[in-house]
Design a protein around this nucleic acid. Structure first.
Lengths: 224, 224
DNA sequence: CCGGACGGTTACAAAGTGGTTACGCCGCGC
DNA sequence: GCGCGGCGTAACCACTTTGTAACCGTCCGG
């Protein structure tokens, strides 16, 4: 279970991250809005904890941007004086909030409650149709077949496709997820990766059964 | 299982020591930084509980000194007002913390969690499949064969692999477990250790039967 | 028709990963 | 002091993964 924590106060960030890690959660960190969104795209966390006031633009903007691409639970951190912001945050789609200062114990209780509410408690088993992806071992299982070993990049590609199974995912978004900043605009990278992945997972790579092309848009994982 | 407790407050020290002894742990005590390090070297405890503010220099210094010579789990004791110190402690390499006041029950739960995480919980015998590892004597037994003597590092490696038998363990995690902070990022260290271990335990080191490589991820102990 | 955009494919180069050999340092018992 | 085991470091090799370029067909608007 992976949690993204966004806060510009390094001490608080580390403390929250540590408390979560202690409790067995995977943690990724970001200290400004740009890094927050980049990390979100790269890591696809199961939950986001977001300080409402960041120096580089508001945490509200980050929350809004996240809501445009995902329904992941979002928890906002606020200080008491920001109650109007809080209302806005909940309107935008934040799921819960915590008023500073708070104890790690409270934080954990709220996080668990959110995850339970989102029905995400059980592991990170990432699956769609007959496809099951194991992020730990970089392996993909199709139905009852022997599992296929994927490379690092192939795993990241499948991760986003499975998370969005059945929906078209734009080439731009896939590039950002797999390569981050660097791959931006480079269709050839994606073309190659898709080709190589199809060779591995498709019974007939020329007539894809799982990884479909949506001309002019991007790719889509067949819901089967 | 031996635990070192360091605190200048005699009452608290005795209370903690009593709770631990009650739960069946061996306890050694120290009341200042000098005694703490001397006792650590003399007793080589399996876990250290360390008050963060000692009159004779900070508990942080003690923690740092311990980290220079060992990856033993360290738990810090703090009061709520010392949160910056806490962040420093975690950076230095402390593994957990407890905010005073705390109940003996909480203390024990945390101590057990730490030991479990370090893979030190169940007696001294760890086993998986036909492999049995004796942490005391640093020896490994495969089925009914004569037991093989392992070095200190080889033992630590096997310890984590056996604890996670059948599952892939990332190179990063193995490095952290065997070398602590210092080994971070150094693949060559792990490469060598695995090589040497395979020479000792594998019938055919070129085609490993127990210690399998998971390319791009880490290693896995065959469930056999 | 022509030409360009686009996606798939082939080919090859560059970078990374893991296994192996070799060597040097250090602490320790003899 | 010497030899030795344990460990760190570097270098080499084979292989895999990833990046880059070029070529091919199809589709489509002029």
């Amino acid at each position: 279970m992976k949690i993204l924590v966004v806060d510009d106060d390094r001490d608080l960030l580390e403390l929250v991250a540590f408390a979560l890690a202690q409790a067995g959660f995977g943690v990724v960190k970001a200290m400004d809005t740009r890094a927050a969104l980049a990390t979100f795209d790269a890591e696809l966390p199961n939950l986001v904890i977001l300080d409402i006031n960041l120096p580089s633009g508001s945490g509200l903007d980050v929350c809004r941007a996240i809501r445009e691409r995902s329904t992941v639970p979002v928890m906002m951190l606020t200080v008491r004086s920001e109650e109007e912001d809080l209302v806005k945050a909940l309107e935008i789609g934040a799921d819960d909030y915590l008023t500073k200062p708070f104890s790690p114990r409270t934080l954990l209780a709220r996080v668990r409650a959110l995850l339970r509410r989102a029905g995400l408690e059980a592991g990170d088993a990432l699956a769609a149709g007959s496809l099951r992806l194991d992020l730990e071992s970089h392996s993909l299982r199709i139905g009852d077949e022997a599992s296929i070993r994927l490379t690092r990049l192939e795993t990241r590609l499948m991760q986003l496709l499975i998370a969005q199974a059945g929906k078209v995912v734009s080439a731009e978004r896939l590039l950002a997820h797999v390569w981050g900043q660097r791959g931006s605009g480079d269709r050839q990278l994606l073309k190659q990766l898709v080709h190589r992945l199809r060779q591995k997972i498709e019974p007939d790579p020329a007539a894809p059964r799982y990884l479909h092309t949506e001309p002019g848009v991007g790719y889509r994982l067949g819901a089967d």
